[in-house]
Amino acid sequence: MTEILSQYGLLLLVGQFPDGPIGGLALTLLMSVAALLLAFPVAVAVAIARTSPIPAIRRAAAFYVTAVRGIPLLLIIFWAFFVLPLVTGVTSSPEITVICALVVYEGAYLGEAIRAALEALPKGQTDASRSLGMSYTATLRKVILPQALFNCLPSMMNQFVLIVKNTSLAYIIGAQEVTFSANSINAQLLTRPFEVYFILAAIYFILCYSLSRLSRVVENRVLRKRSRVTNQPITETPSLARVPS
């Protein structure tokens, strides 16, 4: 196993870089970060649409979320890779395709996480700021979103772990991320799949496990901050202190 690592370690880490396109674990991370950053605004928009006062917008957002939840991610990737270029005439690399598919996918899932955080805020917050004369958008932007987004930091990190794992599907359409690297190592060694897949599983495990531990730390911070915020009024007006989580 060590000689596989010493001979192919660099291929697993960065692919052909710097002589060729970047690949391996580095590409996995790049794709994941890009997908998270691009999915974030989509998800916020979806969350706001899902809680919008206008029924038509709520229904459209619900349709989008339900459709994405009902289709395997692999199928979304195939649509983006094989069908969209035929319809639109625009084609892109497997890496970009997977990032786009993940944005569509995470827009729904992350959107639901943000929506849950939005709905978990006490209704009084909206009522109070609206009665102070703030507009709907100002209420969202200055009162609701900052709190909701802070509260759902842990679930965002969990979604990031999911994104990292989901980038493994990119190998099916030929993006040279770490699963693809493992397969090309198998192509050269031929007879040692267990070791190769073990190394691959270990790489993902170390990465995702550390990220989930980190998200637990963040979760505790968020909980502590929230309880501090809510603990203050408890002494004065206990009836207002309960924050459903």
Binding site: V161, K165, N166, S168, L169, Y171, T179, Y197, L200, A201, Y204, F205, L207, C208, Y209, S212
Partner: peptide, 9 residues
């Protein structure tokens, strides 16, 4: 293990 390794792997 099952939560932190992709299903396809």
């Amino acid at each position: 293990y099952h939560r932190n390794v992709p299903s396809i792997v």
